[in-house]
Simulated scan of single mutants.
Amino acid sequence: MFFASDNAGPVHPQIMNRIVADNAGFALPYGKDPVMDEVRASIRKTFEAPDAAVYLVATGTAANVLALGCYTQPWQVIFASEISHIEEDECNAPEFYSGGAKIKLIPTKDKMTPQALRDAVARRDPEDVHMAQRGPVSITQVTERGSVHSLDELRALTAVAQEFELPVHMDGARFANALVALGCSAAEMTWKLGVDVLSFGGTKNGCMGVEAVIFFDPSKAWEFELRRKRGAHLFSKHRYLSAQMAGYLQDDLWKTTAKLANENAAYLAAGLKARGAHFMTEPQANMIFVSFPRAVHQRLHDAGAQYALWDAPLEGPQDEDIAARLVCDWSISRTQIDAFLGYF
């Protein structure tokens, strides 16, 4: 009964097998391995972007902040939701890797709205030397509250960025979950809408530890290579990153694992609804934010269930509803979900 994080699940066997297969013999280091050529070609085909520059790093934080660093000057601001991943979970790494640029937080309970973004951008006077200047827009897809921006919602946000000639970064740690939920293509959810650079997640969706950074504008490629090296994120034995991503992309495994994770979350959500739980947001991908009585939480914790309490401690009045975050990955079984629901 493990619903704490999709970071905690096992590596998919197809990916593990690919690592083992590519462990034979010697391969050039630092991204010059032949498997990286395969990865680059596969991602370009998947995203219908033949000129895209593609790089691998080991963590989502590295992917986000190195990508943003290529589009952000120290005197600029990064526009992002106040509950964006780069605000809530990156320990000021975007500020560090951009040389001190600020994050301008757009007030929201979930998704950033076009009007709120436009208002925040418009307040920055590009001719005022005393004011932090306009910088890139960063969109978290899936959001940190488990919602998925529709294509129209993404298009409306990127339209604001284009209006002010600002680049757009997409934090796609759960990109695959969002894509499967929307039933669209990778191109439709990125560069066709005006996204300039994507952090394409693998770790949360069946990989051991690899993320891709995809520049739809290849002019930033060399700068990224320098930033990756200077930031100590260029792997020597890079083929083990390449092998993971190659296994992840093979036969669209990345979509298969995301579909399984989303379906597991939908099954869990249906069971919770049937038991009277209250949802903070409507589940759309593989994260659920839900509240139910503390007595049930205590029974679950006593039974060894692992998940995050969201707004109150485990101790307190038994009948008080308290919120939790439940995350499903591809490997969770229906038996585990049924066991969890059995404590209601």
Rank of each mutant, 00 (worst) to 15 (best):
G146F: 03
R228K: 10
R230P: 00
A67V: 03
R227F: 03
E165I: 09
F279H: 07
D311W: 12
V296P: 01
A116K: 11
L226K: 14
P29E: 06
E188S: 07
Y307V: 05
Q141R: 00
A181S: 15
G201Q: 07
L105P: 02
A49V: 06
N177P: 11
M287C: 10
Y30P: 04
R145F: 13
R118F: 11
N205G: 07
A270M: 11
P167A: 11
A24P: 00
A24M: 11
R230S: 07
V39M: 05
V77N: 06
S42I: 04
A265H: 08
A93F: 07
A261V: 13
P126R: 13
E223W: 07
G276I: 04
A21G: 09
L326A: 11
A49I: 04
K32I: 09
L272D: 02
G209Q: 08
W191S: 03
W222A: 15
W330C: 06
R239L: 07
D110P: 10
E263M: 14
A161S: 05
G60C: 11
D217G: 06
R334C: 07
A178T: 00
L166T: 05
L272P: 02
G209C: 10
A49F: 04
L151T: 00
E144P: 01
E38Q: 13
D321V: 13
T143S: 13
Q336H: 15
L241R: 02
H238V: 05
R40P: 02
A308H: 13
W330R: 04
A173L: 11
E48H: 08
A186Q: 07
C70Y: 03
V197Y: 00
K204W: 08
D311I: 09
K111P: 00
R228H: 02
G231F: 01
A24C: 09
N262M: 15
I322T: 12
G25W: 06
M170D: 00
V57H: 02
G247M: 06
L253D: 01
T256A: 13
D171I: 04
G201T: 06
P107K: 10
